[in-house]
Amino acid sequence: MVELMIKNEKAKATIKTPSPMTSEHIQTVEKNTVVQTKGFNLWYGDHHALKDINLDIKENEVTAIIGPSGCGKSTYIKALNRMVELVPIVKTNGEINYRGRNILDPSYEVEELRTKVGMVFQKPNPFPKSIYDNIAYGPRIHGIKNKKILDEIVEKSLRGAAIWDEVKDRLNQNAYGLSGGQQQRICIARCLAIEPDVILMDEPTSALDPISTLKVEELVQELKDNYSIIIVTHNMQQAARISDKTAFFLNGEVVEFDQTDKIFSTPRDKRTEDYISGRFG
């Protein structure tokens, strides 16, 4: 435990990020921290999957998380909306503060957290319902029933996900009839429909063809103006293209976290350099 705290201090010292936590600080720093991870550890049974993670995610930025398979990057973003809890053997400690409140606190309602922190998954997973019902799912479960408002939300979300023109004439068709790329943008629109604060994306383009990937990437760039985005990706070029900051994960640890251009041009750590230059992973 003591050892862990020392490590914690060290990590803080190296990353050196100010961490404003309350709303009073809103105007003070260049950008606000939305999600602050402090000394976070996670175990799958006996396997220590995430070790002492310290990361500050800023508002209206795209933060990319890269690393080889099994490095814990997906686990990390699933921890941010507590989706990891769906695996019964998971244990955690440390802190993840979302806008100043520790989400790991048992009194924090997961449902409330997940309305604020939305998620887009690796494989497009629309519901086998109509496009309209897919988008309206979120608002409906949160008690919005007014048909007019729902219509507005559906249109706005589909426009937001840059797919309105493609589907506006067939909102009542099953979302399963769409192509993989369209399905994924429907899933993004579904996520936008409750206007979350943060959007987590878990390798959202890994199941898509290059053209669909490009569309999703452009979309991420647009969404940045209104949302804070954390995107896990296998694809280093993608991280370089779309993100403001990049974190490199290896064996459950954050090796390096910095501005994306710095990570890709002048990485400080040898392992980051090796990974980026394709020597492993």
């Binding site: 950008k31 508002e59 209206n60 309305t115 919005i144 408002i149 939300i153 409750i194 979350p196 209104n226």
Partner: peptide, 15 residues
């Protein structure tokens, strides 16, 4: 940033 915040809270408020 703060403009974005205002805009995005309409649905969240409704929720």
């Amino acid at each position: 940033a703060s403009q974005g915040l205002e805009k995005k809270h309409s649905i969240q408020d409704m929720i």
